[in-house]
Write a protein that binds this DNA or RNA. Structure first.
Length: 595
RNA sequence: GGGCUCGUAGCUCAGUUGGAUAGAGCACCUCCCUUCUAAGGAGGCGGUCACAGGUUCGAAUCCUGUCGGGCUCACCA
């Protein structure tokens, strides 16, 4: 039983014995650092069942706890707050129990438990990934790892948006202006090459609009009648009709893009367990729409279009099938969700990592799936994250105002390299080793910068103000890890032996670390249920701050005459490093041995 | 206009189911490398928690309204 549970029970017993009252719950909080104590019980809520002075009640319960709970050493009462001091032996026992557990805080997946499928990335195949996708990828990957660590099996997946007018635009522009360029002939990454033609299309499209306007057409009309757009729409029809030439070009260009994406995913360090393609699933939803029509979940309008009436749920009517019988986004999402559960029957819930601009879409999707009678529909979660905006506003691929994912990753590594070379601590490293290190640090800075912010909040990213490497940053935490590795190399102790056999008095800095380590398992669980890597990022930062304070105020090996204290502090440092590594692993961030 | 969401130090962000004097980092100002990595540590400056009411022992947190940003309400995705 945890200490908090024990104390909680004893407080209830005390209240019962002293006041003949029943207390449902006991409210705890961390003791503020200006007061003596380790945990604090808030007395105020007890006043609902006990009449009296909160200070006197606190005193009474405090002395009861000292008498009845072995690990409670002392107490003090400030206003309505009962601060309790815990015996050092309690923390030392905790440490000895976990110090050799390299996966402390992680829960192994249970065999019979339901798995979770996490969808993320899900890009369009007409342009390279940009900073917005980077946030999506980092979040999706990290949340997957966190859910795994919390004790569930996870499948990472995506729905690749490989069909539609957007890819036809790139195809058409390539056909018209491409001169048979290929990634091989140009040396460009495939996604970049295709993206260039997407931009090219837009430029030509705009020219044609201007030309039509000069002929006296209205803007709206010009936008609809531009020949290049009409040609792109015809191409889409040809694709849907299975026209061989169009399909071949589509396959070729998509393959270029996938190859490019693979490189970007590798650069970012993210991966997937299974993939779904829109071109293969966009028809899937139709049969379920038919079913829903029969069961009355949907209804047909006169023109033949099919809708779902959600007005009773406070939403609108939503179309699920066009009058010409073709699928819309919603149709496909219904089909894909059902297909995924068919493919992976052990999946009991899904997480969709998609920007908050689609909040409405997902509340509708989940509601429809519930109405269709799928019991897993209650376990669907839209991991809705805020947009990444630039100082100039929203990123727009067509206008070239995007921060490219590959460029950003490369720039971060370059900056990391400049700082590292300036500090000059890498004697003996080969160029390859250095490059790997710079990549680790650069990615660490980028990933931490993005993941430390609550997913729900939007991020303002200023490319001119480069991401920091000092303070509350990834490199700061990596640095602390490297520092500890340096100590461990030099300490060269057989880090055996326990410290239970002597009355060790904990230093405040040691105790702070032990307390912080102790809550790690809980943080993982919270981060999983709240789908928030930010909780882990903030936890790790607090741990590292505590360690640095310990490091610079307490002698670990050098200047430490007490051999047992040396052993303990080295082991404690090791445990902190281990936890940093594991926590950062859940964020998808690596840690270096030196930096 | 309807719905959703956000507003905390100059800037970027924390702040568990309501709890003590609202916390960090950056920036600015002092100190600390002949002890283990100074990408660090110790301290200072900086707040009407957008505003106004309400709920209660207690509100940054819950409710209502106002102001200000964002998203959304398509036979687009």
């Amino acid at each position: 039983m945890s200490l908090q549970a024990t104390v909680s029970k004893q407080v209830q017993k005390a209240v019962h014995e002293l006041y003949q009252a029943n207390l449902e719950t006991v409210e705890f909080q961390a003791t503020r650092k200006e007061f003596a104590g380790d945990i604090t019980i808030v007395v105020f809520p007890m006043l609902r069942v006990i009449k009296g002075n909160p200070v006197q009640i606190g005193e009474a319960i405090g002395s009861y706890l000292v008498d009845n709970v072995k690990d409670v050493k002392a107490f003090n009462v400030v206003k309505g707050f009962l601060n309790i001091e815990i015996e050092d032996s309690y923390y030392i026992a905790f440490f000895n129990a976990v110090k050799d557990n390299s996966t402390f805080g992680f829960v192994l997946p249970s065999v019979e438990g339901k798995s979770v499928m996490v969808e993320y990335s899900s890009p369009n195949t007409n342009k390279p990934l940009h900073l917005g996708h980077v946030r999506n990828n980092l979040l999706g990957y990290s949340v997957s790892e966190i859910i795994k660590a919390s004790g569930k099996k996870v499948y990472k997946t995506q729905i690749i948006n490989d069909r539609g007018i957007h890819i036809c635009k790139s195809m058409l522009a390539w056909k018209r202006y491409g001169n048979n360029e290929t990634p091989e002939s140009t040396g460009l990454k495939g996604d970049k090459l295709v993206g260039n033609y997407y931009v090219k299309f837009d430029q030509e499209y705009k020219k044609e609009i201007e030309a039509l306007k000069a002929e006296g057409k209205t803007e709206d009309k010009a936008k609809k009648e531009a020949p290049i757009l009409i040609e792109a729409q015809q191409m889409l029809l040809a694709w849907e009709a299975g026209d061989e030439e169009t399909v071949t070009l589509w396959k070729t260009m998509n393959q270029w893009v996938y190859k490019g994406f693979d490189v970007t995913y590798k650069n970012l360090g993210v991966d997937f367990d299974c993939l779904y393609y829109e071109s293969e699933t966009y028809l899937l939803g139709k049969e379920f729409v038919d079913q829903g029509l029969k069961t009355g979940v949907f209804f047909k309008k006169e023109d033949g279009s099919v809708w779902c009436d959600l007005t009773e749920d406070g939403l609108d009517e939503k179309i699920v099938l066009r009058s010409d019988g073709t699928a819309v986004y919603m149709t496909q999402d219904i089909g894909t969700a059902i297909q995924r559960i068919k493919d992976y029957p052990d999946v009991g819930g899904m997480v969709y990592t998609v920007g908050n601009e689609q909040d409405y879409h997902f509340s509708v999707l989940f509601l429809i799936l519930k109405k269709l009678g799928f019991d897993w529909a209650k376990n669907l979660f839209h991991l809705s994250y805020g947009m990444v905006d630039l100082p100039s506003g929203k990123m727009k691929s067509r206008e070239g105002t995007v921060v490219d994912a590959d460029d950003l990753v490369a720039e971060m590594a370059t900056t990391a390299g400049e700082i590292s070379e300036e500090l000059g601590k890498l004697d003996g490293y080969s160029q390859d080793e250095k490059n790997e290190l710079f990549s680790t640090i650069g990615l660490g800075a980028l990933k931490y910068y993005i993941l430390k912010v609550d997913p729900k909040k939007r991020i303002l990213f200023d490319p001119k103000e480069s991401i920091d490497f000092q303070g509350n940053t990834g490199p700061f935490i990596q640095y602390t890890y490297a520092r500890i590795q340096s100590i461990l190399r030099k300490a060269n102790l057989e880090a055996e032996g326990l410290v239970t056999d002597f009355a060790y008095e904990l230093h405040d800095k040691e105790k702070a670390l032990l307390k912080q380590l102790q809550v790690f398992p809980e943080v993982i669980q919270n981060a999983a249920t709240q789908h928030s890597p930010a909780l882990l990022a903030n936890y790790t930062y607090d741990l590292v701050k505590d360690f640095n304070s310990f490091y610079q105020n307490v002698p670990i090996v050098l200047g430490n005459d007490d051999p047992q204290s040396q052993v303990f502090r080295v082991q404690l440092s090791n445990m902190v490093a281990q936890t940093i590594k594991n926590a950062f692993g859940l964020l998808g961030i690596n840690v270096p041995e030196r930096m």
